[in-house]
């Protein structure tokens, strides 16, 4: 228990040290949202929180997406508008029409992106996100996929990554630190 208390205390500290990571994360993509419009990494009109997952996911998405959505709301309460974005790893089921139904359940302002297999693979490669089918249930394939939430600035450049184990308040706090530091 002492370990956990120590770690949580550490996690509650303000944004302090920023070390560079030894690999590239982020890049350009061109995908299609739930309304059928083409969206790129810099077309959200401001910063965004971006997550790779799928609408039918009963695993990590059920944890990470609500946290990301709550973080967006917490930031909005502090006067910072951040666009929540889902990039699907399941384009067969996550068509624009299907995402149009599912997106509001996650967040009323969610932009849910899909596209061709190649376009989505390119986005995953840019963000170093792995995705693979690990089984099937009666509703279709089950995917394992990377689960970090990425904070992007208005130009689509990655500012940092957020583990899904963080609470929404901590996600919002970290994001706020970066966004307040932007000119």
């Amino acid at each position: 228990m002492r370990r956990l208390v120590t770690l949580l205390a550490c996690a509650a500290t303000p944004v302090v040290a920023q070390a560079p990571l030894p690999f590239d994360i982020g890049g350009s993509f061109s995908l299609v949202d739930q309304r059928g419009d083409t969206r790129t990494e810099d077309s959200f009109g401001g910063p965004s929180l971006l997550f790779f997952g799928y609408a039918q996911c009963q695993s990590i998405c059920t944890v990470a997406l609500p946290r990301m959505a709550e973080a967006v709301d917490l930031l909005a309460e502090r006067g910072v508008e951040v666009q929540p974005v889902l990039v699907t790893v399941d384009p067969v089921r996550d068509t624009p029409a299907s995402l149009r139904d599912h997106a509001p359940d996650i967040h009323p302002r969610l932009v849910a992106l899909t596209g061709s297999e190649d376009a989505l693979a390119g986005a995953r490669k840019a963000f170093r996100v792995e995705s693979e089918v690990i089984g099937e249930d009666i509703e279709g394939p089950l995917y394992a996929h990377g689960s970090f939430v990425y904070l992007l600035d208005a130009e689509g450049e990655v500012l940092t990554l957020l583990p899904p184990v963080l609470g929404a308040d901590r996600m919002a706090e970290i994001a706020m630190g970066y966004l307040e530091a932007k000119p």
Binding site: A17, A19, D24, G27, E41, L159
Partner: peptide, 24 residues
């Protein structure tokens, strides 16, 4: 948009927290 190294992005953040920087 060009691909961006997190390291470069982090440099911006690092400049915002100059007394708190840390390297790997």
């Amino acid at each position: 948009m060009r691909q961006m190294m997190v390291g470069v992005v982090a440099l911006s953040a690092l400049m915002a927290f100059p007394a708190m920087a840390a390297e790997g």
